[in-house]
């Protein structure tokens, strides 16, 4: 048995969303079983199953260094804070 990740797309939306996983012996069985496990109430109109061992996964610490780069956040908070500080300074 292999583990498959299941993705479903809803009518009118562009993206496939991950909805869960299942075990199946073949690709065809994975499709048939995913249909019953995740689409029995017509939760979507398109279905992908992807073998988990075919997923290219990054190591866990792959994105960690990017957690400390506030300058890449463009919500304006850093600039606003500096302007506020400038207005309040006596000079």
């Amino acid at each position: 048995m292999r583990v498959y990740e299941v993705f479903v797309k809803k009518d009118g939306r562009n993206e496939f969303r991950h909805v869960g996983a299942l075990e199946a012996a073949t690709d065809e069985l994975a499709l048939v079983l995913a249909r019953e496990a995740y689409l029995r109430r017509a939760e979507g109109d398109r279905l992908w199953v992807v073998r988990r061992d075919h997923v290219v996964a990054a190591p866990g610490d792959f994105v960690d260094p990017n957690a400390d780069k506030p300058h890449r956040h463009h919500d304006g908070a850093a600039v606003a804070a500096r302007r506020m500080a400038a207005r309040q300074s006596p000079g």
């Binding site: 048995m1 299942l22 075990e23 199946a24 048939v32 079983l33 019953e36 496990a37 029995r40």
Partner: peptide, 11 residues
Amino acid sequence: PFLEEDLAVSS
């Protein structure tokens, strides 16, 4: 025999 089959056969 397995969970997914439970769902399929009852469906």
